[in-house]
Amino acid sequence: MDIQVRNANKADFQAVRRIMNQVQEMHVEWRPDIYKPNEDFITEEVFDRMIGCGNLFVADMGGIVAGVLEITYRHIESPTHVTRDVIFIDTMAVDSEFRGKGIGHQFFGKVKELKEASGLDGIELQVNARNHAAYEMYREYGFTEKSINMELL
């Protein structure tokens, strides 16, 4: 089936919310000491702001929203860093029914297209240390580790 990555619109709210809730459930399963169940963390008001920025995309498969991609543009400038402008992938989530069908690669293609069109320096993201499948997909796509977050409980 053909995958179209497009800007999210108001009609996508319930599908985006469903997918984001799946992600939240995974986080709760992996780290119940940090994450808690919350099916309402994306309200319509928050969603409207997200689509208003133009940085929220969905993977559309024949009229079914199968994935969500949210990006931000970051300007990095400090006395200790080289000045850079990057696209940061805040969210890349695929509905559990559609994983393994190439949606992540379509999202990467969209982000790469946006990076090149804007003349930016790079693409960055974070991945949960327990999300081995996503980590491997990112590595296969060419991402390398930039830093590692650690904690002491």
Rank of each mutant, 00 (worst) to 15 (best):
M1K: 12
M1N: 11
D2F: 11
I3N: 03
R6H: 06
N7Q: 14
A8E: 01
N9Y: 07
A11V: 12
A11T: 13
Q14F: 13
Q14M: 12
A15T: 05
A15Y: 04
V16K: 01
I19Y: 01
I19P: 00
M20D: 02
N21A: 10
N21G: 04
Q22A: 06
Q22L: 07
Q22K: 08
Q22H: 10
V23I: 14
V23R: 01
Q24G: 08
Q24D: 06
E25K: 12
E25R: 11
E25Q: 15
E25P: 01
H27P: 03
V28F: 04
V28M: 05
V28W: 03
V28L: 06
E29C: 11
E29I: 09
E29L: 14
R31W: 12
D33I: 08
I34L: 13
Y35D: 00
Y35E: 03
P37I: 10
E39Q: 14
D40V: 09
F41P: 01
F41Q: 04
F41K: 03
I42V: 15
T43D: 00
E45P: 03
E45R: 10
F47L: 04
D48V: 11
I51V: 14
G52S: 10
G54Q: 08
G54H: 11
F57K: 02
F57P: 00
G62I: 10
G63T: 10
V68D: 01
V68G: 00
L69T: 01
E70G: 05
E70N: 12
I71M: 08
T72N: 15
R74K: 15
I76L: 15
E77V: 15
S78K: 12
P79C: 10
P79W: 10
T80L: 14
V82N: 09
D85Q: 14
I87G: 00
I89K: 01
I89E: 02
D90R: 05
T91P: 00
A93E: 01
A93L: 06
V94P: 00
D95C: 03
S96G: 05
F98D: 00
R99I: 08
G100H: 07
K101C: 11
K101D: 04
K101W: 05
K101G: 00
G102Q: 03
G102V: 04
I103G: 00
I103H: 03
G104Q: 04
Q106F: 09
F107L: 05
F107S: 01
F108C: 02
G109W: 01
G109H: 03
K110N: 03
K110H: 06
V111A: 02
K112I: 12
A117V: 11
S118V: 09
S118C: 10
S118L: 14
L120A: 07
D121Q: 07
D121W: 04
E124A: 07
L125Y: 00
Q126I: 14
V127S: 02
N128Q: 10
N128C: 11
N128R: 07
N128Y: 09
A129R: 06
R130V: 04
R130M: 13
N131V: 01
A134T: 05
A134R: 02
E136K: 13
M137C: 13
Y138D: 00
Y138W: 07
R139K: 15
E140T: 13
Y141T: 09
E145Y: 10
E145N: 13
E145G: 07
K146L: 15
S147T: 15
S147E: 11
I148Y: 03
M150T: 09
M150D: 04
M150S: 08
E151L: 11
E151D: 12
